[in-house]
């Protein structure tokens, strides 16, 4: 994954004017050489009509520069800005410079999780659907499994291609019964700290445990500015390169004296462990003076929404940057980028 970190470092340099966008795009082309539509990773590409079509027609609006956006998420200015290009200002906590004021990969769809413990299969399915649509990747997996949350969660049958163990070939959710998907799986003697989302996404797309997706497991130590900055830089780099992420959080917990709060409209009276797909960002000035991480919420439309502390409604979900970051660190979870 050093190569991907180098991309993130290079994107920081693009923002500082030390590397040209053309050079960076060439590096992206090299990294994503096997993608059929690799130009889609270029941050400076134009937004496509297919992307705009992913916004509900009733909510579809355009900025003066042709950027489409969801009117329910429009800028807090209440007026249409002339363009969506980010203006660097002082005081950013990030090293990287986003290209846009707001960038959301609208083609990462919201999918309701099939049951109460399938948030990770739903998040992976949302991300993989994006790869199918944006990069023309096949719906089925590298090993020929049909696209579904169940396939992503399933245990292996003996002798199936891609089964390197008896527990599962992707997320191994079903191996836990109703317990959900682990952040790390400790039972592989050859790799005691396999990260399940990395394992699942890479095996589905590329047939190998390690691939384009890499985990960042955050230490259970005091929260630091450098780790917040590191997440922020990877997040912006990925979204500008049209590369959705997945996060695993622990809500409403306290460890080492630091309390994590909850995602919007989640219950606050108990701990919740939750996976979700990250698909965008908003910079200060879009809504207010905060950075927002945009994500898709698989709880909406599922059997667990409403009546038990959840009150999710349809629409774009977002969480303030520091609030989210605390949820990573309090239990030593993290994200896959």
């Amino acid at each position: 994954m050093d190569k991907k970190q180098k991309l993130a470092d290079m994107y920081v340099q693009v923002g500082q004017g030390d590397v040209s966008m053309a050079t960076y795009n060439a590096a992206l082309d090299n990294f994503y050489a096997s993608d059929l539509n690799k130009e889609f990773h270029h941050p400076d590409r134009g937004i496509t009509t297919d992307e705009c079509a992913a916004i509900a027609a009733a909510n579809l609006r355009y900025l003066n520069d042709g950027t489409c956006y969801d009117v329910t998420e429009e800028s807090a200015t209440g007026s249409v800005p002339t363009n969506n290009i980010y203006s660097p200002t002082n005081g950013s906590p990030l090293s990287v410079t986003p290209r846009y004021r707001q960038r959301i990969l609208w083609q990462v769809p919201q999918m309701a999780q099939n049951n109460g413990w399938y948030c990770a299969p739903a998040a992976a399915a949302e991300v993989l659907r994006f790869w199918q649509v944006a990069y023309h990747q096949p719906a089925s997996s590298y090993f020929g499994d049909s696209f579904s949350q169940s396939s992503l969660a399933a245990q292996c049958q003996s002798g199936q291609p891609g089964c390197w163990n008896t527990r599962g070939k992707y997320l191994m959710t079903d191996a836990n019964g109703i317990g959900g998907t682990d952040w790390r799986w400790r039972e592989f003697p050859w790799n005691p700290y396999s990260y399940m989302m990395e394992y699942g996404l890479n095996k589905w797309r590329q047939g190998a445990e390690h691939g384009d997706y890499a985990p960042i497991g955050l230490p259970q130590e005091d929260i630091t500015f450098s780790r917040l900055q590191s997440f922020g830089d990877k997040w912006i780099t990925d979204i500008d390169a049209a590369f959705p992420m997945v996060a695993d959080v622990a809500e409403n917990r306290t460890n080492r004296g630091v309390t994590s709060l909850s995602l919007p409209k989640h219950p606050t009276t108990r701990t919740i462990w939750h996976w979700f797909a990250i698909r965008g960002y908003s910079t200060p000035g879009w809504y207010d003076n905060y950075w927002y991480v945009h994500y898709v919420e698989s709880v909406y439309g599922s059997s667990i929404n409403n009546t038990r502390g959840y009150a999710l409604t349809q629409g774009n979900n977002k969480v303030e940057l520091l609030r989210l970051h605390t949820m990573f660190e309090v239990d030593g979870f993290g994200y896959v980028w």
Binding site: S75, A76, T77, G78, P81, Y86, S87, T89, N90, G91, S92, P93, R101, I223, F225, L228, T283, P284, G285, W286, Y287, D288, N289, Y290, W291, E320, L321, L322
Partner: peptide
């Protein structure tokens, strides 16, 4: 929303924000 900037006692939280919003939030 602006006043909140001056009341934030968490340095890390403060650093996660822009000191100079690129657009006003007024007149929503």
């Amino acid at each position: 929303g602006r006043a909140d900037l001056s009341h934030d006692a968490t340095p890390l939280a403060a650093r996660s924000r822009q000191a100079q919003p690129s657009a006003p939030t007024a007149v929503s």
